[in-house]
């Protein structure tokens, strides 16, 4: 079975209803960060939380649709990056399947995985759309400095994107994990769509998982 077990499609009504909620958390997380004037996006907390709670498909679809809705309403340029959000939800789903969200070393692993997915995935789109820029002023200053120092384009473009993602994904993963820790115990396994890998005791959910 292994890791693929987490990807087996088993959608309960509860799992489907969770997806729009994750999408809304993505939006609100970003809106609160903007209203507090934090220098971060924090627009994938719901995606990561969905991945941890219910597995890769819920997280992935939530991330994908978050970007599609955002591109259809406020930011058309978000559409190409929906693939990255899909992969980000998958990454969180794998982390959740492996139980990474339960202990601090796992949090670091989840952060590194999400950071790598986001930064490696976004760089080709940045190169195609913005000649390598991430369009975040501070990070683009880094790109300009690296290009002036004759660093190859692709490496400079990656450094540009990575410098923005490193902290953003750290806080995103931390917030998602803290929310998970703050959930009432029965919610932690309620949404899970795959058979748990380990034999942890589980409370019976109110709805049957079909």
């Amino acid at each position: 079975m292994g890791l693929l077990n987490a990807f087996k499609l088993r959608f309960s009504t509860l799992g489907i209803v969770l997806i729009p909620v994750c999408i809304a958390i993505d939006w609100v997380g970003h809106a609160i960060a903007t209203s507090l004037k934090l220098p971060l996006f924090l627009d994938s907390i719901g995606t990561i939380l969905g991945g941890i709670l219910a597995g890769p498909w819920v997280g992935g679809i939530a991330g994908f649709i978050t970007n599609l809705i955002s591109s259809g309403t406020v930011d058309p340029v978000a559409a190409p990056y929906s693939v990255i959000s899909l992969l980000l939800g998958f990454a969180a789903g794998i982390g959740g399947y492996l139980g990474w969200h339960k202990h601090p070393p796992g949090w670091v692993a989840l952060w590194l995985l999400c950071f790598l997915v986001a930064s490696l995935g976004s760089t080709p789109f940045n190169v195609a759309l913005y000649a390598g820029q991430s369009t975040i002023p501070y990070s683009d200053a880094l790109l300009a400095a690296l290009l002036k120092a004759h660093v190859p384009m692709w490496i400079a473009a990656y450094a540009d994107e990575a410098s923005a993602d490193l902290l953003d994904k750290a806080v995103t993963v931390l917030v998602a994990v803290l929310i998970y820790q703050g959930l009432p115990r029965r919610f932690r396994s309620l949404f899970r769509l795959y058979e748990p890998r380990d034999d942890e005791p589980e409370t019976t959910p109110a709805l049957s998982r079909s």
């Binding site: 489907i16 209803v17 997806i19 729009p20 999408i23 809304a24 609100v28 649709i65 809705i69």
Partner: peptide, 11 residues
């Protein structure tokens, strides 16, 4: 379809 519609209202 439900997911998209519902998200557009919940946001």
């Amino acid at each position: 379809g439900y997911v998209v519609q519902s998200a557009l209202q919940i946001i």
